[in-house]
Write a protein that binds this DNA or RNA. Structure first.
Lengths: 324, 324
DNA sequence: TACAGTTACGGACCGCGTAAGCATA
DNA sequence: TATGCTTACGCGGTCCGTAACTGTA
């Protein structure tokens, strides 16, 4: 068994069982891949793929297991190379981040600006998506970091470190009846159509539940996937917006009235996560600290060596998080 | 980077940084290992080992990380080969078990007898040791299974499945004053010198603590590492033995009086553990079920896929364990 | 006939073993 | 001087690319 064979195997598995396509991605010839695959299957003594005629059509059950192990191996090889790269040239490399709209739009720009100034030779890749999509990227090892709020469950392979907390704000156009009220009640808010995030309505501690607990049934006029859309519709007089605190810009949004809603809705915690199996480059530590100053190398390493997220949570229980 | 190089690296690391010794174990020449090591270090761009003159003296910090990753890779390669072996010839292979004296001497013989009858072509290796030694074997991947009682903490990499429960017994020579008492009290037992396991005296719920909780300070005449030694000294009139229930054989020990002590000391649970990272061969499943009939493949797989021991414990909380 | 994978073959490279060289205790 | 690692060199095997072949839509 050779590492090369495992690489070829992984490429074939990840390119729709198409050997030709895999060979192209690997910058080698198609017969080379074909042959090594066959040699690997010969050595193992069983077929990894089901063939109908000459084309690969399916993965056998045992093949599936082998592929999983192979991906694990390749990930470790990558880790070893990362250890090496970090020593050779610690300021050069790449950093892929999966994150949600709110973070990408309102929080990360300043962080990334600082980061790029410090590490001009690090290739930055930002992938925006829903938390499900980010979880998918994480599972496939396509990203180094995930930055999101809530939803710990989908990130089993990850260590999640809390970064900062934030409240929601209510935004209304100037002149709206609520604009004059400093501390509105849930009941007052519920009198108007509501415009907010899609995700705020699923799961526990959702807006839905908060209103219904108070015996109210909110009239949701629109659910959007990002704050910009929400603010746009608020401007159009569609309803009352409920957005993340950070999503309100004092300058750009000076035509809107932003009302503190920390007394109405619970606090949220944004975290940054990385694979428990991964090796962190120096600039990755630095990125985390730029995002959240309390995340120093010592603390990150302690958390990274923990077996379960519960332990990590316990570690951070004693640390006070900044509020944005 | 080649798998071969990682194998060589691991061998050198595990043979006291002696390249010659490593080469011998690998059935290859010393220059071959030397060269591949150097090639690997060249590729990585840093030294894995510290050399004084030409001999290797230490492992560099980065080298240590690389070695850990390499061992992980080799473990996965082994797993892939196990998947293969299981399909090719599922009745042939090897099974290494680390266990304590009590299990090896009193419980496993019948299990192993049945196992060997079913799988005559599986090489069985039994390694007896203290729980620390077994934990060490587990950490180094030298065993497939660990079977022991208590001490979950040292087996972080393992999934531990409870097998059966047992009580302690008090053994005295015929004619001893306690021999006539059906249900002795702690106070009565404490009147005589005590002969028991070394390990029963450390940690929480130890004998020491049980006695001191009752306001008694036992006179420990002898601590042994196995029940046979304990019984020998009991026969010599050295004191009152406290041993595992299973360690008393009605036939062989008919000269001793064994008194039920379930009302004095808490119940113990013996578990079998295997690496969370490992692949289980078919005969391994069968071995576990021979040891504890409730451990069927379905249940083992469910437990094996769990991330933490807490989840496994929760799974087994509902299952009634046999008492031996 | 277009497409995808296999087989065949020559060349480059690589890893091994033998043998000799070199540094340290 | 013994031990242990490195260097040198030739052989055999391996892997790749090109090209021709084969089976399927």
């Amino acid at each position: 068994m050779k590492l090369q064979q495992l690489r070829y195997l992984a490429a074939v598995a990840q390119n729709g069982l198409n050997i030709t396509a895999a060979a192209e991605k690997l910058h080698t010839s198609q017969p080379a891949v074909s042959k090594q695959l066959k040699l690997l299957e010969d050595e193992l003594g069983f077929n990894i793929f089901v063939r109908s005629g000459r084309t690969l059509t399916k993965i056998t059950p045992a093949g599936q297991k082998v592929i999983e192990r192979a991906l694990h191996i390749l990930r470790e090889v990558y880790n070893i190379k990362n250890i090496s790269a970090d020593l050779k040239d610690e300021d050069r490399g790449s950093l892929s981040i999966g994150t949600t709209h709110t973070q990408a739009r309102y929080v990360l720009p300043t962080v990334i600006q600082q980061f790029r100034a410090k590490y001009p030779n690090v290739d930055l890749h930002l992938h925006q998506g829903t938390s499900e999509q980010i979880a998918e990227m994480a599972a496939l090892d396509h990203i180094d970091f995930a930055i999101a709020t809530g939803s710990h469950e989908q990130f089993r392979k990850y260590v999640l470190l809390p970064c900062y907390q934030w409240y929601r704000r209510i935004v209304v156009p100037a002149g709206h009846p609520l604009a004059l009220i400093k501390k509105p009640t849930l009941k007052q808010v519920a009198q108007y159509p509501i415009v907010t995030y899609v995700f705020s309505f699923t799961g526990p501690s959702s807006l839905q539940q908060i209103f219904s607990k108070a015996g109210l049934s909110p009239n949701v006029a629109l659910t959007a996937r990002d704050a910009d859309v929400i603010k746009t519709y608020v401007r159009l007089g569609f309803g009352v917006g409920i957005v993340a605190d950070v999503a309100v810009d004092p300058k750009e949004d000076r035509d809107l009235v932003a009302i503190d809603a920390s007394h109405l809705f619970p606090i949220h915690t944004t975290w940054i996560g990385f694979s428990r199996d991964g090796v962190l480059r120096r600039y990755m530590y630095d990125f985390m600290q730029l995002l959240a100053p309390h995340l120093n190398k010592r603390l990150i390493d302690r958390a990274g060596n923990m077996q379960s997220q519960e332990e990590v949570d316990a570690l951070f229980a004693e640390i006070e998080l900044p509020i944005r």
